[in-house]
Computed example of a mutant assay.
Amino acid sequence: MAQFDARDLLDCYARGVFPMADAREDERVFLIDPERRGVIPLEGLHVSRRLARTVRTEPFEVRIDTAFREVVRRCAEAGPGRMETWINRPIEALYVGLHAEGFAHSVECWQDGELVGGLYGVALHGAFFGESMFSRQRDASKVALVHLVARLIAGGYRLLDAQFMTAHLTQFGAREISRADYRRRLATALTVQANFQRAGAAMGGAVALQMISQAS
């Protein structure tokens, strides 16, 4: 992996593969091309009534790209139900490199000056590849995901790749598709020139929900 840099990683995403490691302290990195792929619909995202109320009340200050490295590090930490992580230090460095070049972004939830939740991923043309999320306060990662989807809709994205299906994502309407279907969707998304920053630096909760509702 010594010669593998951020641009090589971007090429991997364009081919439909992504990196993983076995453990935080394991320096080895391998590429994954799963037979089944999880995707989150940008049209028809399911937001429960309870979560919608939380988003509207804005318990968190939602920021974009102000603490990217810290978000990655928090995602790499062990926690309840997750004793190990696939984000090792070489992978962390690759994403920090992509962020420096404008291809990786974080959505962050702050409370009383503290980073309490968020997510990060890679943006390439009209596709966004969600990598990981974390939460230190109830609903923080969920609020970040709602704001991410609203931002992707505003920016003209066509695909939100969740990589693997999880119980956490099914509540939002995420579904599993075949590798062939995924690659067709990816090919279409890569023809689109989307803009992650089109929505600006900040977006209120009510606006985010309205954008999602209009896209449904």
Rank of each mutant, 00 (worst) to 15 (best):
Y95G: 02
Y95T: 03
V96A: 15
G97P: 12
G97R: 10
G97H: 08
G97Y: 11
L98Y: 09
L98K: 02
H99V: 04
H99I: 06
A100F: 00
A100S: 14
A100C: 05
E101Q: 13
E101S: 14
F103V: 07
F103A: 14
F103M: 08
A104E: 08
A104P: 04
A104L: 08
A104F: 09
A104N: 06
A104H: 08
H105K: 04
H105S: 08
S106A: 15
V107F: 10
V107P: 06
C109F: 00
C109Q: 02
W110L: 15
W110E: 14
Q111P: 00
Q111N: 05
Q111C: 14
D112T: 10
D112E: 15
D112Y: 04
G113L: 12
G113K: 11
G113D: 12
L115F: 05
V116L: 09
V116E: 07
G118V: 06
G118T: 07
G118K: 02
L119V: 08
L119M: 15
L119Q: 05
L119P: 04
Y120T: 07
Y120R: 10
Y120P: 07
Y120D: 06
Y120Q: 08
Y120H: 10
G121T: 03
G121F: 01
V122K: 06
V122F: 06
V122R: 07
V122L: 14
A123P: 09
H125Y: 00
H125G: 00
H125K: 12
G126A: 06
A127R: 02
A127K: 02
A127W: 00
F128A: 02
F129T: 14
F129E: 09
F129I: 13
G130F: 11
E131G: 02
M133L: 09
M133D: 10
M133C: 10
M133N: 09
F134E: 13
F134P: 12
S135D: 03
S135G: 09
R136P: 04
Q137K: 15
Q137I: 02
Q137F: 04
Q137G: 02
Q137W: 00
R138T: 15
R138L: 08
R138K: 13
R138E: 14
R138N: 10
D139S: 07
A140K: 14
A140C: 14
S141V: 06
S141A: 14
S141G: 04
K142W: 11
K142Q: 15
K142H: 13
K142G: 13
V143L: 05
V143P: 12
A144S: 15
L145V: 13
V146N: 03
V146Q: 03
L148M: 09
L148G: 05
V149F: 04
V149N: 03
A150R: 12
A150E: 13
A150K: 11
R151M: 06
R151A: 04
R151W: 07
L152Q: 08
L152D: 04
L152A: 10
I153Y: 01
I153H: 01
A154T: 13
A154R: 12
A154S: 14
G156P: 02
G156W: 01
G156Q: 02
Y157Q: 00
R158N: 01
R158I: 00
R158S: 08
R158L: 09
R158H: 09
L159Y: 01
L159M: 05
L159Q: 01
L160D: 04
D161L: 05
D161C: 06
